[in-house]
């Protein structure tokens, strides 16, 4: 197997072992979800190559891995923005104005729900209840770092968060110099 087929193992070998150790030896398939989360650290998207690799690690078929990716909404087969802004617009939040809030976020970024900004930084999505209904408007940001909640948000909070998030790479570039 070429190096290319071993992206995860090469990079996260130890973590993969820790994950596998959580489950009985003959139940490796259980690790598929944590491994997919691990894989999404690479650009927040699951590729065919990654699915093949996970299938190999777990001794299941690639199709079985793909089924999982397709069933659960926090795995992405399609590429989106570097940050997915996932705003809850479910009933309890909607009662507290989250539909309007979502539209405002969209306006701020110049996209519609489900779309990605031109610079590929943000995708705005409307999602189901996030278990933070009392703190509406609420959204989570899903990026390669993981998922973080932002509660009791105003549109100016969002604006400064956006600024902060797009700055990060610039700061890194500064450091590189």
């Amino acid at each position: 197997m070429s190096k290319e087929d071993n992206i995860l193992v090469t990079k996260y070998g130890d973590q993969i072992q820790v994950i596998l150790d959580r489950y009985p030896d003959d139940q490796k398939r259980s690790a598929v979800m944590p491994l997919l989360f691990l894989a999404q650290r690479e650009g927040l998207q699951i590729t065919d190559v990654i699915m093949d690799e996970i299938a190999n690690i777990l001794g299941v078929s690639t199709t079985q891995v793909a089924s999982i990716v397709g069933f659960y909404t926090l795995y992405y087969l399609q590429s989106g923005g570097r940050n997915r802004i996932q705003i809850c617009t479910d009933l309890p939040c909607a009662l507290r104005g989250s539909d309007d809030f979502a539209n405002q976020v969209c306006d701020t970024l110049g996209v519609k729900i489900g779309e990605t900004t031109e610079d590929s930084e943000f995708t705005v999505e409307a999602v189901m209840c996030l278990a933070a209904c009392d703190k509406a408007p609420v959204f989570q940001i899903h990026n390669s770092e993981g998922i973080s909640y932002f509660e009791n948000q105003t549109i100016s909070d969002v604006q400064s968060l956006i600024d902060q998030l797009v700055k990060v790479p610039e700061i890194l570039e500064e450091d590189d110099k």
Binding site: S61, Q64, V69, G70
Partner: peptide, 8 residues
């Protein structure tokens, strides 16, 4: 299991 369900 070379065929399976996707989505929900």
């Amino acid at each position: 299991a070379v065929i399976g369900f996707e989505q929900r």
